[in-house]
């Protein structure tokens, strides 16, 4: 693979919890400015892989390279300034806070904390706050939920909460956004909206990695797909290539079933 296009390389990641091998020798190469799908049956190790990339889980072996530089084993919060940001499978928002405050936390690493100025209500702290708000509102506008910015998050519909989480990840000004099942719990209209948002972000130069169960969505939007099963990569490549891979068909869809049958069940 050419190195210049390669933004994230996952090299030989292995991890086991007790006797269970959650990931074994996983290699994934994510190209810059693409949407990369990670799919696989439940328990295949997809979320574990996300946790390894974002530093929440330390792998037993293997390395991750971001734009050719090896990521050191640092705390998760130190990865955000390097340009990795994420959403969670089971939405993890700050529920009692407003939508705007949630997105402002996304900007945490890009907002200085001038303590003296904060205490004295100085101009510097107010200016930083104003810039952060503008950027946060920008992210909300991008998601099309700026009219909800003063609502308490827990009062929003599920699909909208997903968008808030997306906006929060975007506010961290990442190079790579990891989306853990972004379409889960969304209705068809919301899914169409999500597709267009993901497409627009790719056009803007972001790289997105997503875990998703909705095959239609994955096949539609992803430029590349990695298929995980029992902690191993069993197929990799463009959607058209992967969907014809016999390993993928038998592991993920079961033998004798076709994609459409799967979609109907969803």
């Amino acid at each position: 693979m050419t190195h210049g296009l390669n933004i994230l390389s996952i090299n030989g990641i292995s991890i086991s919890f007790g006797g269970l091998k959650a990931l074994s020798d996983v290699n994934v190469h994510v190209m810059k400015n693409t949407v990369h799908g990670i799919i696989g049956p439940n328990g295949a190790g997809k979320s574990t892989l996300f946790n390894v990339i974002t530093g929440l889980t330390k792998p037993d072996s293997g390395d991750i390279f971001l734009e050719g530089t090896k990521l050191p084993h640092i705390k998760p919060h130190q990865l955000v300034p390097l340009g990795i940001s994420r959403t969670f499978q089971n939405i993890r928002l700050f529920k009692e806070m407003t939508v705007l405050d949630n997105v402002l936390i996304g900007q945490h690493v890009h907002t200085p904390t001038p303590i003296i100025s904060i205490l004295l209500n100085g101009r510097k702290s107010n200016e930083y706050e104003k810039i952060s708000r503008e950027k946060a509102i920008e992210a909300l506008e991008f998601m099309g939920i700026e009219d909800k910015m003063n609502d308490i998050v827990k009062n929003l519909a599920y699909g909208q909460q997903r968008l808030v989480e997306f906006a929060r990840a975007l506010a961290a000004q990442p190079k790579i956004i990891l989306l853990d099942e972004p379409a889960a719990g969304m209705n068809p209209t919301e899914k169409v909206n999500l597709l267009s948002i993901i497409g627009k972000l790719r056009d803007k130069g972001y790289t997105l990695i997503l875990i998703e169960h909705d095959m239609k969505l994955v096949m539609n939007i992803c430029d590349n797909i990695s298929v995980l099963d029992h902690g191993k990569i069993i197929a990799q490549g463009q959607p058209e290539v992967v969907r014809k891979n016999p390993d993928f068909i038998s592991a993920y869809l079961g033998k004798g079933e076709n994609l459409n049958a799967r979609n109907k069940r969803n």
Binding site: K75, P81, R92, L93, F94, I105
Partner: peptide, 13 residues
């Protein structure tokens, strides 16, 4: 509200 999410957003919890 959620210290893990805060950490993931870059907060030194």
């Amino acid at each position: 509200e959620d210290d893990l999410a805060a950490e993931a957003m870059g907060v030194n919890v």
